[in-house]
Nucleic acid binder design. Structure first.
Length: 206
DNA sequence: ATGAGGATCCTCT
DNA sequence: GAGGATCCTCATA
């Protein structure tokens, strides 16, 4: 396999829904580990109630408002990290959550980081598992994925035929269920299952 | 200063 | 399929 092409900031400075489809099949690299993305979710800015940016700019979501092609990492549930690729551009929030992928290099390291995985397909099957396999954490928040010198980089992969891209509601969110902004590669063993959003109180109208 | 609620995962049953 | 782990972030006061 020849040296893959690194993605550019300009090609990621698009609507997160388009960026999500573009990212499928692309490869994220950190250290010795490479993951080929199989499942992603688009999050928009202030018009998306499920987005971290829905209520405006805060210290946590700062990176999402910045330039495209940077990594937005956040901490959830007191123990996990999730990673996003920032899309759109300065001043307009948008990002794509990296939900799952297939480990295509660094299998031994990946396995050692995920002792609970029962198969290689499970290594990066889920957003927190994906960050875990790549060794990403708080310190990687904001890194430029389009810079060859960055510790985490994003490369183009074999293109995914549009017919192989499926869409559905986002996982684990209890609002905006009607928008099919989760995209995945049909048939990929790494795609995580759908799970409805938890306990959001449904306000009873009277 | 406080408290509620997570873009999850793992271990059981 | 349910429940717990675990702590950060933000809104409210």
């Amino acid at each position: 396999m020849s040296t893959p092409r690194q993605l550019t900031r300009a090609e990621l400075a698009i609507d997160p829904i388009d960026a999500a489809k573009l990212l499928l099949g692309c490869v994220l690299e950190a250290g010795d580990v490479r993951v080929r993305l199989a499942e992603v979710e688009a999050y928009r800015g202030i018009d998306d109630p499920a987005s971290h940016c829905y209520r405006g700019r805060t210290p946590r979501n700062e990176v999402m408002w910045g330039p495209a092609g940077h990594l937005y990492v956040y901490f959830v549930y007191g123990m996990h990290f999730c990673a996003n690729v920032v899309s759109l551009t300065d001043g307009v929030a948008g990002a794509v959550l990296l939900r799952a992928g297939e480990v295509v290099a660094g299998l031994d390291v990946a396995r050692s980081r995920r002792p609970a995985a029962r198969s290689d397909a499970e290594l990066a099957k889920g957003p927190a598992r994906l960050t875990s396999v790549l060794g990403l954490d708080r310190g990687d928040n904001g890194v430029d994925l389009t810079d060859p010198a960055s510790p985490v980089r994003l490369y183009a992969g074999d293109p995914v035929p549009p017919a192989s891209i499926l869409a559905g509601p986002r996982v684990g969110v209890a609002v905006a269920m009607e928008v099919p902004w989760r995209f995945w590669v049909d048939g990929s063993p790494a795609v995580s299952g759908y799970r409805r959003g938890g306990k959001r109180r449904v306000r009873t109208v009277r």
